[in-house]
């Protein structure tokens, strides 16, 4: 009962939130919601112990695929978004063959190389990817009405509700996956790979599965972004964006489900709202970099460790957390 009321209050707050913000802040809010999905999908991949530098490019695959399906094949936008996500997941399965021959640092660099190759292919081939300038004039989400609310996608508020609903549903799916036996196996693949393998777990299959699911949701995030902005180009998915995602995950912490989301929200609010309002436009990367360094130096377990400290009632830690620290 208490949980339900917290949930309802939270939902009401999320619905009311955009009405307290300015127009440009509403637009940032849309990106924030999409980035929450991106960083949460990234965490699913890190569950199996792999840190990829290609995740943002996979997001771009979803955006490009969805844009091309609507533009070239005339597929209805919501359907093509799902197809974009599926394309990203399938590409991840394909990439898993070379990439999962590597582990750790080599996987990091390998995923970066694979991502850069995809990005440069977009840049090099004008047909059908549009070259450096990318694809513009992507069909927006068609307006529709659900009776009590009229979705008008010229308004960021509408897109915020639309994307927000999809993101919440996706987060719920990701949460269920993590808590399912499959999700527990992902943990086992990371922390006890030898034992898991000895118990008959096919490590490669589970790593591929995690990679495919994470990529699918990243692709969905990309499709959501592409149809909102109306353009996609190779530079909007470059390594700098990946660095931001990595920072969110690390500043937030990846031991809990909410850690990366927390990192994403806190840093985005700090970055977009506080620093922009203070007129520190030029110094933003500097401050961002300093925050990264300070948080890795003084808060190595992320913001989530603060939350855990504040909310912990029982001193008994779960065995899973012990292994993590």
């Amino acid at each position: 009962m208490r949980n339900l009321s917290i949930l309802l209050v939270g939902l009401a707050a999320l619905i009311a939130l955009p009405h307290a913000l300015s127009f440009s802040q509403q637009e940032i809010l849309v990106f924030l919601v999409i980035n929450v999905l991106l960083v949460t999908s990234y965490r699913l991949l890190t569950l199996t112990g792999e840190w990829s530098l290609g995740h943002v490019v996979i997001m771009g695959v979803g955006a490009y695929a969805s844009a091309l399906y609507t533009k070239e094949l005339g597929i209805y936008v919501p359907v093509s978004m799902i197809l974009g996500a599926v394309t990203a997941a399938l590409l991840a399965v394909l990439l898993s063959f070379p990439l999962f021959r590597m582990k750790g640092f080599y996987f990091l660099i390998g995923s970066f190389a694979a991502g850069e190759i995809i990005r440069l292919i977009w840049k090099r081939f004008r047909e059908p990817f549009g070259g450096v300038r990318g694809i513009s004039g992507i069909d927006p989400m068609p307006d529709f009405s659900i009776g009590i609310y009229q979705f008008d996608f010229f308004e960021p508020v509408s897109y915020y509700y639309f994307a927000g609903a999809i993101v919440i549903a996706s987060l719920w799916v990701l949460w269920r996956i993590e808590k399912s036996p499959v999700g527990l196996t992902f943990h086992a693949v990371h922390w006890q790979d030898k034992l898991a393998q000895a118990s008959g777990v096919n490590l490669r299959a589970y790593r591929t599965l995690a990679f495919a699911i994470a990529s699918g949701f990243a692709g969905l995030a990309g499709a959501l972004q592409g149809h909102y902005v109306g353009t996609v180009n190779p530079n909007s998915f470059d390594i700098e964006v990946m660095v931001f995602v990595l920072t969110w995950a690390i500043v937030g912490g990846t031991q809990t489900f909410y850690g990366p989301i927390l990192g994403c929200i806190v840093l985005t609010v700090l970055n977009e709202i506080v620093l922009r309002e203070m007129g520190l436009e030029q110094a933003r990367p500097l401050i961002y970099g300093a925050i990264m360094i300070l948080s890795i130096l003084f808060l190595p377990n992320g913001l989530e460790s603060l939350v855990q400290k504040a909310t912990r009632r029982k001193p008994v830690a779960k065995p899973e957390e012990k292994a993590a620290t």
């Binding site: 690390i250 933003r284 990367p285 961002y288 970099g289 990264m292 360094i293």
Partner: peptide, 13 residues
């Protein structure tokens, strides 16, 4: 991660 942070600081300097 720290070296990425340092990279951003040098760049914006």
């Amino acid at each position: 991660v720290a070296s990425i942070g340092f990279l951003m600081i040098l760049q914006s300097l």
